[in-house]
Design a binder for these strands. Structure first.
Lengths: 200, 200
DNA sequence: GCCCAAGTGGACACTACTGTCCGTTTCGGT
DNA sequence: ACCGAAACGGACAGTAGTGTCCACTTGGGC
């Protein structure tokens, strides 16, 4: 069903270029103005008309999906390259922080969008990317034994939360790195017996 | 300057009631529809006209500030009650999770809003609430020695991030508690030497 | 019980964004 | 170089939210 070679009607070169420019522009605009940024602003920033944008991406979710797909591909490449090593999981986590995080931060934000069919299609791919590395990291004792995939999604959401500019002048990268550090090692000292006494 | 007793022009009873109803409604609407929820929806949910809402709160930030002020007062009471105990800091953190978190979650979200004069006025109050307990917790070794106030604000933002409904059916409370647990104890096992090798 | 100031909420004009339509331009095969 | 198809982008009408105005209602001092 996916192997029909005669399915390509041959895209025009300029159309392909425009598509790429739009995705790049969307990256920047989403990063600076948030995911709710006016569609129009993205078109203007990309130097195309709004109609062109709509022709390529029916709605903002499709556009978000395109961005995420790029990043997902990059992360999958990292995972492939690192193979079965038990620290692949941590590498993926830090990889998201390392290579500037606006777009990756969309992953958790968008995955929990209810009415976004284009995005739900990506969920299994994210699952596939993370499941095996997480399992191996757990087996090797690099992460706590009770850490689930759901936890990881939430962790990504938490990391995304510190992306918003707080006017403190600290770079996004610096804040992300610090947040990851806090998350990985926890708020309490390693040796301390402090615990969360949420109910007696 | 604040001690003029003749400054009260005597509010009317029904006006006071409406104001309270609006704040309560805003709590629910913000929680379920997010901080960007239409002002109109809040008015309708409170059973008042939009003009009444605007008369009480010139913009959504003033309304947000009113909500936060309530919660802040509650947390200040907790802090006062716990006095100098070194675990007051953790109690404040868990307190936010315990007593349903929609509104408290606004704290970090709103504190980093750039154009929100009504909110910036609350910053020193938040600072005052947290500084001493944090210091005492650090001194007692209950939290890591390098934990700063800025970190704590980011932690609050991170906790807020898991409030968004993810459709998983897990309760907000449950997710918050889990997120706090992860944050407090970290992703790596207590004994493990795993570290974030973000740059070699 | 009366009256006026305080308070109310529906109506209105305004703005920002959305999504589509259509006349014009550009690509690429011949 | 020519031509048809593909792609473009400005223009347009529709919609949702905002903030204000004003004729009407209500509380509370007298």
């Amino acid at each position: 069903m996916t192997s029909l070679p005669e399915k390509k009607p041959a895209r025009r070169r300029d159309a392909e270029e425009n598509r790429a420019r739009i995705v790049a522009a969307a990256r920047e605009v989403y990063a600076s103005a948030g995911f709710d940024a006016p569609f129009d602003a993205i078109a203007r920033h990309a130097g195309v008309g709004r109609a062109t944008l709509y022709r390529n991406f029916p709605d903002r979710f499709a556009l978000g999906a395109a961005i995420i797909e790029d990043d997902l591909a990059a992360l999958e490449a990292i995972a492939r390259k690192h193979g079965d090593r038990p620290d692949t999981f941590m590498t993926l986590l830090t990889g998201m922080v390392e290579r500037h995080t606006e777009a990756h931060a969309l992953v958790p934000v968008l995955l929990r969008e209810p009415g976004a069919p284009a995005l739900q299609a990506l969920v299994p791919r994210v699952t596939r990317l993370l499941t095996a590395p997480l399992e191996r990291a757990r087996a090797a004792g690099l992460v706590r034994a009770d850490l689930t995939l759901t936890d990881v999604i939430d962790v990504l959401a938490m990391l995304a939360a510190v992306l918003a500019d707080d006017g403190s002048g600290r770079s996004r990268h610096g804040r992300m790195a610090r947040a990851l550090e806090l998350l990985v090692h926890g708020l309490v000292p390693r040796a301390a017996g402090a615990r969360v006494t949420s109910r007696r």
